[in-house]
Write a protein that binds this DNA or RNA. Sequence first.
RNA 1: GGAGAGGUUCCCGAGUGGCCAAAGGGAGCAGACUGUAAAUCUGCCGGCUUAUGCCUUCGGAGGUUCGAAUCCUCCCCUCUCCA
Length: 399
Amino acid sequence: MSGAKKVKDDIAQRAAVLMHGAAEVISLPELEQRLKLGRPLRIKLGLDPTAPDLHLGHSLVLKKLRDFQRDGHTVIFLVGDFTAMIGDPTGRSETRKPLTREEISTNAETYRSQAFKILDPDRTEVRFNSEWMDEMGVRRLIQLAARQSVARMLERDDFEKRLEAEEPLFLHELLYPLIQAYDSVALGADVELGGTDQKFNLLVGRDLQRSMSHEPQIVMTMPLLEGLDGVRKMSKSLGNYVGITESADEMFGKLMSVSDTLMLRYYELLTDTPTAEIEKIRKHEIHPMEAKKRLAETIITEYHGAAAARAARHHFESRFQRGEIPRDAQVFRIASALWICELMKQLKFAPSTSEARRLLGQGAVRVDGKTITDVNFRFVPGEHEVIEVGKRRVARIKP
RNA sequence: GGAGAGGUUCCCGAGUGGCCAAAGGGAGCAGACUGUAAAUCUGCCGGCUUAUGCCUUCGGAGGUUCGAAUCCUCCCCUCUCCA
């Protein structure tokens, strides 16, 4: 085999590895060609600093970026601070309220520290799009807008749907894909990553780069991860997420509550488990509950280490399968007898007295293992000790 | 600028003078069943220290009325058609 041929094969192989797990790459030949240049590529990921909690859904994209880093490429972590200040409507039918500069920088910092749980900080460039957008000015913005037709922008699925449904669509929303695209120009992105829902925006980046005589970026989309409900995509605002900074115990509990079907999906997307192994689980050759525990352990190991993952499993088995009161349950001190509803409120086990009453009425409250239904029950520290509300909320009360 | 439709509790959506804290569905919570799975069934689902009781809520501000989410006035916002 000649040297040149070998290099070629190597590149094909690198490209194949990088593509692994992606939903779509546009286009593979271009990626190979770009890799052939032999220089570190600039891999862009844009994030809006709105809801500053990264979750397992983000981890798919972040892990893919890490793959690129391991091959020596540079990741550009683009914080859309400019866009966030205007109030980003992307993907939502209602306009978000704009964030202040201060909120944005706090959120951006949170993002950054969370992202570095997965990314290599030495190969990551953190940038903000206000860097160039603040300077742009109306004249240049209009010139930029002249590069894309309205019809082209309206091809975007959610724009089309909203128009169809007679829901409001504002002018500035049409501008968003364009600004995101311009970020790619400004950054000289070689590749841009995103969820499959970002495909349109990423492609506009390609168009714009081409129209401004830049090399068009390669677009790589990652599958969207379903949230804990198994239906809608994982997102903070839907509350169906597992955050990457959550404790091992919380992660374990959340992952165990997932349906068997979703478990298989998580195996595929979130772990490197071989297909053959996943098939076994699908065919129930492994008890689904055991499989789910392994899934939880595997995922938790990535963020907390193997020891913590094992501990989380033990904790789960003790707490929920054997119904034991955890030794490390939160301890709360009260000086004297307290009305049970008030106690629940103070523990944040119920958001209001009314809710506390309802829970009592439904038999959800136990004190030292005994169900309490009396709304007037008074909790006496010393005499009573453990309060449980529902399956998940427990506290030890001490005088 | 003109004509029409519309803004309801977390979301969708019914309600056009008292029976409305407001149908129904979704989400959520709790209980049963379980593997804290799914499916299913049942209940809850604005707030208030004890309630056949009170308070707050139906885009906003006023008004009519014994009584308003429902009627009137003005204002704000969205959509459609015409220009």
